[in-house]
Structures are given as C-alpha cells and as structure tokens.
Design a protein around this nucleic acid. Sequence first.
DNA 1: GCGCTTTCTGAAAGCGTTTTCCCTCAGAGG
DNA 2: CCTCTGAGGGAAAACGCTTTCAGAAAGCGC
Lengths: 354, 354
Amino acid sequence: MSELESQAHATLDAVARRAGVSLATASRALNGTTRVREDLRCRVRAAADQLGYIPNAHAQALASASNNTVGLICHDVGDPYFAAIADGVMRAAAEKDLLVMLASTFREPAREIAYVSTLRAQRARAILLIGSGFQDRTWERALAAELEPYVRAGGRVAVVSRHRSLRVDAVLPENRGGASALARALLDLGHREFAVLTGPPSLTTVSDRLAGFRAELARAGVTLPPERIVHGPFTREGGYTAARALLARGERPTCVFAVTDVMAVGALAAFREQGVRVPEDISLAGFDDIPLVRELSPPLTTVALPLTAMGQEVMALALREPRGPRSRVLRMGGEVVLRASVAPPLCDVPVRCQ
Amino acid sequence: MSELESQAHATLDAVARRAGVSLATASRALNGTTRVREDLRCRVRAAADQLGYIPNAHAQALASASNNTVGLICHDVGDPYFAAIADGVMRAAAEKDLLVMLASTFREPAREIAYVSTLRAQRARAILLIGSGFQDRTWERALAAELEPYVRAGGRVAVVSRHRSLRVDAVLPENRGGASALARALLDLGHREFAVLTGPPSLTTVSDRLAGFRAELARAGVTLPPERIVHGPFTREGGYTAARALLARGERPTCVFAVTDVMAVGALAAFREQGVRVPEDISLAGFDDIPLVRELSPPLTTVALPLTAMGQEVMALALREPRGPRSRVLRMGGEVVLRASVAPPLCDVPVRCQ
DNA sequence: GCGCTTTCTGAAAGCGTTTTCCCTCAGAGG
DNA sequence: CCTCTGAGGGAAAACGCTTTCAGAAAGCGC
C-alpha cells in the first residue's frame, strides 16, 4: 500500500549483483552444492549478510521440486494424548530440520480431508495422520482416495493408531495385548464384576481394546454384560457422562475400564461427585498413560504407551525409504502400569478376597 | 528415481490444454478472480477433476506474492499451557483458512531464532511467539533483530506473554493484577506465612506475578523473606524440586504460591511424597488454570487465564490491519479461582483463625 | 607450445502459477 | 451501417530460485 511501509525482500539477484558474480554463482556459493572459489564465496556471503538476504522458500521449492515440510494432522492439539505425540513429532522434525505444518481437525472428517488436500498443494514431503479414524466408512474411503495419488506422486504417509484400511506405514499401539494384560492384572486382583467406558464402536482403537479386554475376561470365565458397556466420545466429558450413565443405571461393578485415560479422568470426576470412592468402591483403569494421570489421586492404573516416542517413530517411518509395496507396522507400548486407582474388590462381593 | 514410481503432479497447463483453453483462462476459471464464461469454467473444472489437479502452493505463493501460512513458535507443545494456547491458535487458523507451521523451541533460544528465520524464508504472513522470552538479554536482542526486517517487509508479529522489549502486538496475561488478587484471597483466608515457587527471575511473567503477589502482601504488612522464594524452571520437575528444596530448608509456610500451574503440579507431588497434606498443612495455589488442575485432588486454586481464547486473540491481533506505530496490548484473564487446595491456616499458627 | 583434463563461472532454461496487457467480438447507440 | 463500449480470452511477462549446458581459465604432461 503505502510507499515506505513495505520494503521488499532482497533477492538472490541483488546479492549476486552486489557481490559482482552471476546469479548461478551466488546460488552455488550460498548452498554449497558445487565448489566455488573461496574468495567469491566470501564476497557472496558478505553481500547476503549486508542485504539481509533470506531465500524465498517458495522459489526454492518450485525450482528444486523439493522441500522440507511435513504435515501433521491430529484431532485436537489441546488433548494431552495428541499433544504428547505431537511433541515427539516436533522433536523428530527438529532433528531432521523439517518444518511441520500442523492441522487440527477438531474431529470433523471433512476438515481432515481438506487438510490433506492443502498439504498436497504444499507438496509436503510427508503427511502424518494421528489418531483414530472416523466412524463413517465413507470418510475413510474419501481420505484414502485423497491420499492415494499423493503417495503415487512420491509423497509419504504414515499414521498413528489409524484404521488398517489405510494401507500405509503405521505406528500402532499394542491395543489388544495391552488391554488383555490389563484385564489379567485386574482379574488377578480378584475382580469379576467389570464395566467398560468406551468410545465410538467402529474405531479399531476401541474395538481392539475392547476385544483384548474381553478375551482375557472370557478366558477366566468372566462375562461382560452389554449393560456394563457405555459408549461416549473420546473426551473427558465423554468419560464423565458415561460414568454417570453407568451409575444411573444402578450398575455397581467392582472395576471400571475406560478405554482412554482422558475418559478415565472424566469418570474419576463423576465417581468423586457421586461419592463413589476409587479404589475402595470401584477400581478404575485407563489406557494411554498420558502424563497427567500420574498426578491424579489416586494415580491411575493404565496401559502405557510411549506417546512421545510414537511421535518420533511415525516421523521416522514416514521418512524411511520405502522398501516395497508392503506397509510397515510398528507396534508399541502395551505395558500395564499398576497405580493406586485399582485395588482388590471389597469382600462383600462374592469372590475370593486377597 | 524409478520410472513408474513417481507420477508427476498435473499442472495447470495440462488442465488448460485438456479443457481447450489458455493457461490464463484456466487460472481465472479456478480462482474466480475474473468473470469467465460459464461453459468454459465448467470445462476447466471438469478437466481439473479428471486430472486430479492440485495447484502448487509454492508456485501460487511465488506468483502472487502472498500466501496463507502463519508460524507458531512455542517452547513445548507437550506442555499443557502451550497446548491450550496452540489449540486456540488452531481454531482461529481453521476459521480463517490459514495453515499453521508449528515450531517447538524446546526452550533453546538458538532454535527460536532459527525458526523465525525459517518462517521468514517461508514468507509466513504472520509469526506468533508464545511464552516467556529467554533470560539472556542477548538472545532477546537477536530475536528483535531478526523480527524487525520481517515486520518492515510487511510481516506481522504478535506474541503471548513475551517481554515488552519486543515492540509488537501482544496478548498479556493479567499477571500482576491476578497475583495481587490471589494474594488478597489468601490473606483473607488468614494466611500470613507464605512461600513462592517461581521461575527464572528475569522473565517478566515471573517478576510481574511475584511483584503483584508481594505488593498485596506488603499492603497487609506481610513480608516474604528471601529464603521463602525458590527458583526453578517452569516445569513440573522444577516445581517438584523447588518444593522439596523448600521443605528441606525447614521452611513451613502455611501457604505456597507456585507461579505456574505446571510447577504447582510438581509441588503437589512433592508435598504428598513428604507427607505434607494440602490444604491441611499447607495451602497451595498456582497460576494459569490449565485444564488438568481441576482434576487434581485437591483441585488447585489458581488464577485463571483463558488460554484458548488467548490463542485465538493473538492470531486476531496478528491479522488485524496495523493502525499505527504503536503496538497493541490486550490484557486477559487474572481472575482468582478458589478451589480446595487452599484453606484457612491451622490455628497453631499465631494468626486469627476463621 | 600444444592438446587435454579439470575447475569454476555465467547464460539461460525451466519450475507452475498469477497477472498485465492487448486483442477480439458482441451488442448498444447513433 | 458504423463507431463505441465492455466483457472475456490469450500471449507473455513476471515471481525468485536451481540446475543444465557450455564456455573460459587454469593446470598438466609431452
């Protein structure tokens, strides 16, 4: 607009002119791609400094058909689960000198697809998708349709905890095994009356954790009646509401498994509000081991996932040279961390008491 | 590399050719900048769809000298404080159709400056700096030197909670007033023996909160002896260590103020570990009102900051047309939220007891 | 002194868009 | 029937870089 206000950026051309060399030499001197006589290199450097030259990344990307940005798509950076994974991704990016474009879908599938498209336009070197896919099969298909040409054009895609229908490299939490191990531990404590607070049933994250948990119960001859399974969104409020609903139904299990820690946090609040003591009245366990659950009282028993490491690994996976058509899958975590939120059931329940 | 593997992106040229129009028309048809005959527009659209055309954002940015990316620099996305603000920024970005490039400095000043440089190269429309600056005056100066030509070239800069030495638009938490109000509330409860767990003293966030707190105590004739002030990093561990140090010194205040909630979380853990009950033995208060402090038991008394809104506002500030040379400052938050982590001091302390 | 490498350097051709400038053509007005 | 206007379309010039392709200069053995 006004004359003085915007002062254009110095271009490489200006640098070259000032250093008394050609454009090509200036480019080479600055990038060090080819040998350039030392004195010329110095002159160019000096000229660049004096002019405050900052290369135009867009021009570079356009000319060299390469760039060092990656896209990170998650549902909600405010959620500690995603924040922890994003942190890992950021660490990996810093190490590899990559710039991360972050996108939060706010759990709207349309937004996710739009972001993939945007990242394609940016010619991002890789796209990282974090978190469970959407219930709707249609969306998952649309997403795959958007991703496929990207991959064909040389883009890399890697995901954390997505539905396997996307045939891409993936970091998968040890959902089934972890949930089984947790069930085992809870059974060992003497619990027989379980309830589960869970997310949208069509997500593999949910179904795997549920299946693992159930399988282990079944092995011990314990069943999980449908009225003891409450669905809700993967949020604190979801957990809160689900726990309230459970209590409102008059269900009094000795142990509640929330399929994510975030839901467990909500459940804990609900229990507290209703005067249900944890673990004396009800034992509570979660999944993920987000940092905050250690700070609760009682600290939450959960299945640990190395979230930051998972973030780093998904980046590594995306950057690794593809070896073939088969997608690589890295399973991580799954260890039970016993904390004070679980205890043996009270003796008025007709099971052995330790 | 291999022949089949990479399949180049369709270009606008290809779209134009297929639609039987010129490059210019194709561009206009897709962007809708000028009127284009309806049938041609359709033909272009169809051709673009068939070819799976995705415009090259770099070429667009280069040609139009504009783009819609903004840079977000924070210390650590994994920290709930930054995560919450980042969430607000993401919301604002989604609304305005901006792409956010995220950078975590991991609290290394050099990295921060490098990121500003990178974002300048990307010709980001705005740069958002979140969180306290670094102690070292040299770094702050270097940062300003990097930012200044960016602003002169038309870039926008806005910060949350940075040192005022950066003359840019800013969202500032009501540090002083909030801390004063908190002190007032604690005094009203009857406390006279205070301790403070605090961060690096050169940060204004720290000094303002400390000053506000102190001023209010002074007004009540209460002093804060230096041995009751413990410094540490702005992390959970910092709070933990500081609290341990305080106890190790044999100090037994009736009330502890941690200048950030994250530190308070660490302090709470330390107290619990040492058998110090909160609030019976020591009242504990924090600052920020990060979501997790509501889940603690006891829930933490704190000074509320609307973190997500602050993230939204800093974006709004960065995007707003500059009105003049004066930088705009938006003060937000500062209300005391009383929760169960504070209580009147026990009567064995020689003060009035409520 | 001659031809032959070996280094560097410079000119220029892209990269994929947007945008300016100009031309054409239809329709309105006389 | 002719001119004027305005709308729409095409050619080509940017945008700021990288990289190819030659050419110049310098070093070398004979």
